[in-house]
Computed example of a mutant assay.
Amino acid sequence: MFKLLLCCLLLTIDGGWAFNHGQDLVDFQTYKENFTKTYPSTSACNFANYYFIYNRNQVAQHNAQADRNRTTFREAVNQFSDIRLIQFAALLPKAVSTVASAPTDPPPSQAAATSFDIITDFELTVAVEDQGVNCSSSWAYATAKAVEIMNAVQSANPLPSSLSAQQLLDCAGMGTGCSTQTPMAALNYLTQLTDAYLYPEVDYPNNNSLKTPGMCQPPSSVSVGVKLAGYSTVADNDDAAVMRYVSNGFPVIVEYNPATFGFMQYSSGVYVQETSALTNPRSSQFLVVVGYDHDVDSNLDYWRCLNSFGETWGEEGYIRIVRRSNQPIAKSAVFPSALA
């Protein structure tokens, strides 16, 4: 109890600020327990407490606007609520491709349906992954999940095994696996190396506590691995193509700017990105577009995307993003298109 009081009640002398120790302390203690938070020092704990209170209050203010129908989505305290927005953005630096694209011709496709969802329409049970806060690895998680979902659709397997993002981090990261790498590196690895199979996570476990990729060590004896024959790209802003491929059972990976309070603490509803975030983004998070539809409550069309922030973020790990011509989802869009 003394350590808790020392951590969370004392003011930070150098910083010149303090916080009250009533309900704020109770809320922060509950937050730490719910998200299994520990901090390396009293100072770090104090800063976390300060920003938790700030972000909690921001969530309350935003949701008060949602209650008045002045915004179309809600926010909630989550694993990022003890850091500043600028720190969150720094965790997810702008992606920079280090490899040449080697796409194949896109597969034949039928016209897009009015609405479609790969997960629900094919009745798939797909695990939501958590990339953690130590490594900007959404490029690997998104690629592994897209291959997993496509393989599940084409093999008619409603209960696919999670595929290893860690393998892609270790084997395709090329020195920037925890910073600025892109899905293209993973897709080139899987298609250009003859012995590159993407293994189940149970055989090549993910480890979101690592701050750097590990050694590339594919398991020596596994019964199942997915071999990818090709991938295809979508031109920037070509949302009609994204819709068509998703409607034909191909999950599409897109690059998205996450550096807003709304994305960081998104909880539910149709997310409409702030105008300022639409230009000159300095952060990247790769999402997997799995569906699209119309939301009756907000009267907005939306994309349904799978993130890799775990099930406690968003709508059990998913986010619905507004679908409109002036906010295209197709950015650096790519998708696995053929199995070997």
Score class of each variant (00 low, 15 high):
F88M: 05
N78T: 02
S41A: 11
A196M: 07
S220G: 13
P108K: 13
T38K: 13
V246M: 10
L300C: 02
T233P: 07
V128F: 03
S115I: 05
I13N: 07
L287F: 15
E201N: 14
D293F: 03
S325L: 08
A142Y: 01
Q87F: 02
D130S: 09
A142L: 06
T104F: 11
A340R: 11
I253N: 01
A235E: 07
D27R: 12
I53E: 06
V270H: 10
T98M: 14
L163T: 01
S223Y: 03
A64F: 06
Q110M: 11
R84G: 05
Q181C: 12
L163H: 02
V224F: 15
Y204I: 09
A66T: 12
S138R: 04
S268M: 10
P219S: 03
A64C: 03
Y231C: 00
Q167E: 10
T98A: 15
L190N: 08
K227G: 00
V270D: 06
P183F: 14
A330T: 03
A185C: 04
A95V: 09
L168F: 06
A196I: 04
R323Q: 08
L228I: 09
A196H: 14
L6F: 15
Q167T: 02
S337R: 00
S283W: 05
Q166K: 14
T212V: 10
A64W: 02
S43K: 08
A146D: 00
T114D: 12
S155V: 10
D238Y: 14
S101A: 15
L228H: 01
C178G: 03
Y31W: 07
D297Q: 14
H294P: 00
Y245N: 01
A229H: 05
T191A: 01
T182D: 05
A196G: 07
Q61T: 13
G249E: 12
P107A: 14
E148C: 08
T275C: 01
V252N: 01
E123L: 12
S332T: 06
S247W: 05
N307T: 15
R323N: 11
S308T: 13
F88P: 00
F73Y: 15
A186T: 02
N257Y: 03
V242G: 01
V288H: 01
D105V: 15
A66G: 02
Q131P: 08
W303Q: 09
T114L: 11
L300D: 00
S221F: 15
K211W: 07
I13M: 07
L10D: 04
P258G: 08
S155E: 05
E129T: 15
P205H: 08
T12L: 14
R74Q: 14
G291M: 04
A102P: 00
A89K: 09
G175E: 09
T191M: 01
P219C: 04
